[in-house]
Design a protein around this nucleic acid. Structure first.
Lengths: 211, 211
DNA sequence: GTGCGATGTATCGCGCCGATACATCGCACG
DNA sequence: CGTGCGATGTATCGGCGCGATACATCGCAC
């Protein structure tokens, strides 16, 4: 899942770790806390080992290489490779069970602008199914276990149930929009926003194949 | 965090692993998926090693011990010890930073019926603070990065922001209730429920301060 | 009588986290 | 002028928790 996010960001522009973490935080801020360095660096090493990214040293190609006089470590800029772009596309299109989990879904959704419509629909529907199951589970507990559970636990379930219902409604809206071929415009609560031509259906010209 | 939940459930009644997992799933269903056995069994072993729980063999004390004729493994029933109860009380009252994280908060909240009022308030307020910070972060991104992020990513942020605002309101209500000395009765959306005397103020006779 | 789903215990590899360490840079404050 | 502190920056380590996997028993439906 992290792979997807990192590859996706590096496809927009090369970055070093620290920067990557910040970008990740704003892009995924809605679904998870900032990623830990204890996760980031090992992951970068793994991606590098797989050949999906390479290090593009601070000093550009022509420079003096920065002699190892002091143990100057300097920032390491990472750059996505052609294989990395392929991998990204593969991960984008793939939709396993964990794609519908909270974290997985969030990451996929964050890159929907680069995903084709069919996949977007598949993922939105899978997620909806998942959340509906969760919702049913909570309803059952609330209906059956009212006697066995204390007031606080029940309140927690109610709050969770509410969140599920809300998310299902949200997903339903998104799905309807996808089917009618619109990007997620139309602000959640109606506001006097001009309906400027939103990026036409499958557009959001992305992955310019590197000029 | 798991320790708290397991100790809490075992305090209500002794159980074997499988059962524990199911109880955990209904008690914490609102905040997390069912716990994996790959987590549960090692955790039980750890708790056992610490002396907080003991195995109470299937065959009760007086029975024949079930000779190891076949490699009959049988279910292992776990029982909380006196030290375990102390530990539970300690964990209940403790409120570190991770108590305000999604998972940690949920577990603590699920055992609020056994928590004293002062601690409940402390935790609710800590959680509120946490969620407010998250909310501010999302607001900033939505206000500043509107140009840099695509429509889908923005929609994700909006949905996350909405969830934060909702949770803050929920917490606010709970805090107000605590201050006015009521258990979380009064169903979220008003309903014609008789206001039967809910457990009087600080009641829900819990943690009798350990006499 | 046999096969299948629920019950039940257990391990393994690995992703990810929080704590920690260490180094450089810019700049504010005395 | 220095000094110290917060932001930038890279990296490791111990440990929790997950999903996959294995294996065994029990009740019951077909």
């Amino acid at each position: 899942m992290l792979d997807l996010a990192i590859l996706g960001l590096l496809q927009e522009s090369s970055m070093h770790g620290y920067e990557l973490r910040k970008e990740l935080a704003t892009k995924l801020g809605a679904i998870r806390a900032a990623i830990s360095y204890g996760t980031l660096y090992p992951t970068l090493r793994r991606l590098r080992g797989a050949g999906w990214i390479i290090e593009a040293g601070e000093a550009a190609a022509g420079a003096e290489e920065v002699p190892p006089l002091t143990s100057r470590r300097g920032r390491v800029v990472y750059k996505i490779t052609a294989e990395g772009k392929e991998r990204f596309a593969e991960l984008l299109a793939r939709a396993g069970p964990e794609t519908y989990e909270d974290a997985g879904f969030g990451v996929h959704f964050a890159f929907f602008a680069r995903t084709d419509r069919a996949t977007r629909l598949r993922i939105l529907e899978g997620r909806r199914r998942k959340v509906e199951e969760r919702r049913e589970g909570l309803r059952d507990v609330l209906a059956r276990a009212t006697e066995r559970l204390d007031a606080y636990t029940l309140e927690l379930q109610r709050h969770g149930l509410d969140a599920c219902e809300r998310e299902v409604r949200w997903l339903e809206e998104l799905i309807a929009n996808e089917r009618s071929g619109r990007a997620p415009e139309g602000r959640p609560s109606g506001s006097p926003q001009e309906e400027d031509s939103p990026p036409p259906p499958g557009s959001t010209r992305d992955i310019p194949e590197r000029p």
